Simulated scan of single mutants.
Amino acid sequence: MSNMSPAKHLLVVTMLFLSLSMAVTTSQSSVGRTMSKEDIGLKTEKLTHFHFFLHAIISGPNIDDVNVALPPPTSTTPAADALFGRVDVVDIPMTIGPNISSERIGSFQGVVAGVSPVEELTYFMEVAFIFTEGKYNGSTLVMLGRNQATMKLRELPIVGGTGIFRFARGYALTRTYSPFDTKTGIAIYEYDLYALHY
């Protein structure tokens, strides 16, 4: 290539580049393929409704809602009192009834972040409902969205799932059943999930 003119050299380099680009494009297009639902055993879509309670233990010996980050303090709001920027990790029991001793059906696990001033009590939630009983054992539903706790009834989207709930979509309705009790350290939330899945 040392005896080539600059124009021929550029042409050869361009041809090599185009050949390589075509090879990469060809190999990438073979990565995916169109399938039918039947190819992976998906049958009729159905709607499932769940009703249960969460017991958030925020203080005491058996905490299941742990603060992992606080925002830096400002001149007007000490960090301990600030909600905006607060991040908690949760592993909260899901039970059939509002009493913490009622039958446990799973866990509510994920990350909850404060996205508003304290007076608005708004959180962004990225959590999984992990079922541990009956035919749903080992399956999960994932919820992702904004939860404004000052509203009586809140709606959040169900964006996916695993196990029985592969390809799931739907919504969750939640309400505060019992606000945080400083004596017990517990807040109780009631959930209704509506999930479309196969």
Rank of each mutant, 00 (worst) to 15 (best):
S5D: 15
S5R: 13
S5C: 14
P6S: 11
P6L: 12
V12E: 06
V12L: 13
M15T: 15
F17G: 14
M22E: 10
M22V: 10
S29E: 09
R33W: 08
R33T: 10
M35V: 15
S36E: 05
E38M: 11
D39A: 12
L42D: 00
T44F: 12
E45N: 05
H49L: 06
F52N: 00
F52H: 06
A56P: 01
A56E: 14
I57K: 15
S59K: 01
I63C: 07
I63Q: 13
V66D: 04
P71Q: 13
T74C: 08
S75Q: 07
T76L: 10
P78F: 13
A79E: 03
A79H: 04
R86E: 12
R86M: 11
D88A: 14
D88I: 15
V89A: 13
I92V: 11
T95R: 09
I96G: 05
P98L: 05
N99W: 08
S101C: 02
E103K: 12
E103L: 06
R104V: 03
Q109S: 14
V112Q: 04
A113C: 07
A113T: 10
A113S: 11
A113V: 11
G114S: 04
V115A: 06
E120H: 02
T122K: 00
Y123T: 14
F124W: 08
A128M: 07
A128H: 11
F129C: 03
I130F: 08
I130H: 07
F131H: 07
F131G: 09
E133L: 02
E133M: 01
Y136S: 14
G138M: 12
T140N: 15
G145D: 02
G145I: 01
M151H: 08
L156W: 01
I158Q: 08
R166G: 14
A168P: 12
A172Q: 02
T174M: 13
Y177W: 15
F180R: 04
T182K: 12
T182V: 13
I188M: 02
I188D: 02
Y189F: 14
Y189N: 05
E190S: 05
D192N: 08
L193W: 02
Y198C: 09
